[in-house]
């Protein structure tokens, strides 16, 4: 049986998928995962999940974020107003600019 492993590097960080292990049950999966995926990289916590319990939807079957122009939901579209008056608005706009770029390139 295959178990997917998600590692959190430090408290407060997100758990991110880092690999998987073969194991006959949950207990063994946790034992194997901590060695295989937690021994070298900084690790605070691991989540171990049966692979068959993970459902997937990918970009072959789904149009994530849609296909038509959705510029209205990006801060940068509103270029007649200036975000620099508030650090948090400016920061959000910067994050959105990067996310929109990544989505466009994909």
């Amino acid at each position: 049986m295959i178990w997917e492993v998600f590692r959190q590097a430090k408290p407060g960080k997100y758990h991110q998928h880092c690999g998987n292990v073969h194991a006959p049950d949950r207990e063994m999966a946790k034992l194997f995962a901590q060695i295989q995926h937690g021994r070298r990289m900084q690790t605070n916590s691991l989540w171990v999940v049966p692979q068959e319990e993970v459902s997937e939807v990918d970009s072959d079957e789904a149009a994530f974020g849609g296909a038509t122009d959705k510029a209205y939901r990006w801060a940068m579209t509103y270029n007649r107003v200036d975000a620099s008056f508030a650090a948090e608005v400016e920061e959000s706009e910067e994050e959105q600019r990067e996310a929109a770029k990544a989505q466009e390139e994909a």
Partner: peptide, 13 residues
């Protein structure tokens, strides 16, 4: 009574 309905479009639209 605005002059024009506002447009909000992306560059690639």
């Amino acid at each position: 009574g605005f002059d024009q309905p506002t447009r909000l479009r992306g560059e690639g639209a």
